[in-house]
Computed example of a mutant assay.
Amino acid sequence: MAAAAVFSYRIFCPIRCSAASNNHDPNKQKLNNISYSGNSTRSTKVDLHSQTTGVASTFVASVAAEKEGCRINEVQIRQNIPTKKQFVDPYRHGLIIEGGVGYRQTVVVRSYEVGPDKTATLESILNLFQETALNHVWMSGLLSNGFGATHGMMRNNLIWVVSRMQVEIDHYPIWGEVVEIDTWVGASGKNGMRRDWLIRSQATGHIFARATSTWVMMNQQTRRLSKIPAEVRAEISPWFIDKQAIIEDVPEKISKLDDTAKYVNSDLKPKRSDLDMNHHVNNVKYVRWMLENTEGNVEVQM
Rank of each mutant, 00 (worst) to 15 (best):
M193G: 00
M193E: 06
R194H: 10
W197C: 05
W197M: 02
I199R: 01
R200Y: 14
R200F: 15
R200W: 12
R200K: 04
R200L: 12
S201H: 10
Q202N: 06
A203S: 02
A203W: 13
T204Q: 03
H206G: 03
I207K: 10
I207M: 12
I207H: 14
F208C: 08
A211L: 11
S213N: 08
T214K: 09
W215V: 02
W215A: 04
V216K: 10
V216T: 10
V216F: 12
M217K: 06
M217E: 07
N219L: 15
Q220P: 08
Q221C: 09
T222W: 15
R223M: 14
R224H: 08
S226Y: 15
K227F: 12
I228V: 05
A230S: 12
V232H: 12
R233M: 07
R233A: 12
A234P: 00
A234V: 01
E235R: 14
E235L: 14
E235N: 04
I236K: 01
P238Y: 13
P238D: 05
P238K: 03
W239D: 03
F240G: 09
I241A: 06
I241F: 01
I241T: 00
D242W: 11
K243L: 12
K243D: 11
Q244D: 11
Q244W: 15
A245I: 03
I246S: 00
I246K: 07
I247P: 05
D249V: 12
D249A: 08
V250M: 13
V250K: 13
V250L: 15
V250P: 06
P251W: 06
K253H: 01
K256A: 10
L257F: 11
D258Y: 03
D259G: 05
D259F: 15
D259H: 14
A261K: 09
K262F: 11
N265I: 01
N265M: 08
S266T: 08
D267N: 09
L268V: 02
L268A: 00
K269Y: 13
K269S: 05
P270W: 04
P270N: 10
P270K: 04
P270V: 11
K271G: 10
R272E: 02
S273C: 08
D274T: 01
L275V: 01
L275Q: 02
L275E: 03
D276C: 04
D276R: 01
M277Y: 09
M277H: 03
M277E: 05
M277G: 08
M277W: 15
M277N: 01
N278C: 00
N278L: 12
H279I: 09
H279D: 11
H280W: 08
H280V: 05
H280C: 05
V281N: 09
V281W: 15
V281P: 07
N282Y: 14
N282K: 10
V284H: 02
V284N: 01
Y286C: 00
Y286I: 07
R288Y: 13
R288L: 05
L291S: 07
L291N: 12
N293H: 15
E295S: 05
G296D: 02
G296Q: 07
G296M: 12
N297M: 15
N297P: 07
V298L: 12
V298H: 03
V298E: 02
E299C: 13
